[in-house]
Design a protein around this nucleic acid. Structure first.
Lengths: 343, 343
DNA sequence: CTGAAAGCGCTAACAT
DNA sequence: ATGTTAGCGCTTTCAG
């Protein structure tokens, strides 16, 4: 009979079995809710479990089972509401399916992103949900492991042929820009993100398509790039709006840069929407509390997360299924920041 | 010699050892970076590890070690920037210390909060960082396990005598309210949170202390409660501001309710700060982009997380140390929304 | 219906 | 310097 050398630690199944006068196998069966368990024993076991405050050790359990009911989530920035919104959606679906979440922050650093994914793999997560910090990375090719399914969100990592979900960015930019044109605008500027980002390219494309449809020519001096952060947006807006001839409308491709642009506009003493109309990508709860309320191309943030989670669940259920790429439709929220131009 | 029955799974240490022609112990030693490893063998092992793409199974490893280098984080709402800011701070410290994060969302539900904590305990996390969704709960007493250290953040759970960190809420409310008084305001209203919340009580106390210092009497009709969400803030502001005689300044005790209040104020056609000055708890990046920029009592969000993580690390290093309760100082950010009243 | 025993992948004595 | 072996806590045949 084995000794219990367990000073000051959480109780084990062995201790439960001893105290209940049964075998560990029986305890295991009772806890698994399996058939084959006498009513008397079952009750006794459950009582002891409660008495001892026994919690099965999931590590030991999963060491055998090889299926962990844990998924890893890697995002570039914990503070960005767009990303946390996605995590919210992920959490909703996965929690209901009985999964636990490992959360890691890649901090927009591709090396760290890789390390986090490796750690998760070490932890034998069932799968990984990844919001890549870049579209392209040397690692992605070699990360295409056969055994840990990955679902990419928002940005499609080149070389990683995995399930993928994102907003239809081209369409979103088209919708937003078109709205400005419909309102009578012809002098339209754009603040876009870093050049080699796929998302950026798509939004750029949508913007240009809208201009083309409206027979408006692109004006390079009204185009600027930020870094998707507040500071970059402010700088870009300053650049565009302090020129001799400035646009009467601005399409901003991300909400953080929009906040920066707003600062710039205020500092320049311009009025929205009279001096300049604004519409941006991403709709945030506070847009409506702004003065004036800000128009936006809303991404279905939560839905992105839910879809990604479902994609993973599906793949777990059927590992061989073919790779799916899902595009979710954005929605235009028109508010006072882009009302019709005074003729 | 044991058979390797490992179809289509991640390689194990056994496979590595076979292929390298050494024992599993040697592989383990090499990977642990221990001394006692011939240069030749070391190189051979590392080569095989790379070839096979071997990742040690942390489950198996930790099954022996009983120390997981994983900590659990439970927060009431993934979408709330205040909470995710805290998680950001936690992550920063814990990542540097080599820890991984389990993240769970209690969804402001006390039952779920308990379940998540139990699951984490099942996963043998080294400790739990908890932002309680209520100050008081029947569970807390019985959750005071001896073995899984808990650190509470923002709200102090009654009955759980654990390390704790929060902002000095009383002081924060005092600072904010005092600023309004200094600006010449005497008609000051407050939008506060749910009655039985500790944080709410403290902020209420700070507000009253400031009024008392300024020899201003509290006016009950200028006091309203919201639910700490946008809708509640709007309703509360509507209630206070549509009365016959309304206050000329508003202290709002949380940023979501501030957004709601802003909506109400706009809808009522009131101008900030001329018709009503506003200052709120929590400073968010977009406050500065508002028109006018919103004054706030800034909580050291990130610092809260970092401190909590450090508190946990300290306790892990020295389990017997006495319980610590840390209060961090808030900081007043004065902006145009509460400029001096016109005399 | 229940118990005994093997083994999941790894590490840490204990040997050699 | 390296191999052998005994578990960590659990589930799961295989017996009874």
């Amino acid at each position: 009979m084995k000794k219990i050398a367990n000073p000051n630690r959480q109780p084990t199944i062995l201790e439960v079995s001893r105290k209940a006068g049964v075998s560990t196998a029986t305890v295991s069966r009772v806890l698994a809710g399996l058939e084959g368990a006498g009513d008397a024993t079952r009750k006794k076991v459950l009582r002891v479990v409660k008495e001892l405050g026994y919690q099965p050790n999931r590590l030991a359990r999963n060491l055998r089972a090889t299926s962990r009911k844990v998924v890893g989530v890697v995002i570039p920035d914990l503070q960005n509401p767009f990303f946390t919104g996605i995590v919210g959606g992920i959490e909703e679906v996965l929690h209901d399916a009985g999964y636990t979440l490992f959360l890691a922050n890649s901090d927009d650093n591709i090396d760290r992103e890789l390390i986090e994914m490796q750690t998760m793999r070490s932890d034998r997560v069932s799968g990984i949900l990844l919001i890549p910090c870049q579209s392209e990375a040397p690692h992605y090719q070699e990360m295409a492991w056969s055994d840990t399914p990955i679902v990419a969100i928002d940005r499609s990592p080149i070389g990683l042929d995995v399930d993928f979900v994102a907003t239809n960015n081209e369409e979103g930019a088209y919708l937003g820009t078109s709205r400005l044109i419909e309102a009578g605008h012809k002098k339209i500027g754009i603040i876009n993100g870093p050049e080699k980002n796929d998302v950026v390219k798509e939004r750029q494309a949508g913007f240009r398509r809208a201009l083309k449809m409206g027979r408006i020519k692109v004006r390079e001096s009204w185009t600027a790039r930020g870094d998707f952060r507040i500071g970059g947006g402010k700088k870009a807006a300053m650049q565009i709006m302090s020129g001799a001839e400035r646009p009467k409308a601005l399409f901003v491709t991300n909400f953080l840069m929009m906040l920066g642009a707003l600062q710039a506009v205020h500092e320049l003493g311009l009025k929205i929407p009279d001096d300049v109309a604004i519409i941006s990508f991403d709709d945030m709860p506070w847009n409506i509390a702004m003065n004036p309320p800000i128009s936006a191309v809303a991404q279905p943030t939560r839905e992105l997360g839910k879809t990604a989670a479902q994609l993973l669940l599906d793949r777990l259920a059927e590992p061989a299924r073919s790779v799916r790429r899902v595009a979710l439709q954005p929605e235009l929220k028109v508010r006072a920041s882009c009302k019709a131009m005074e003729k």
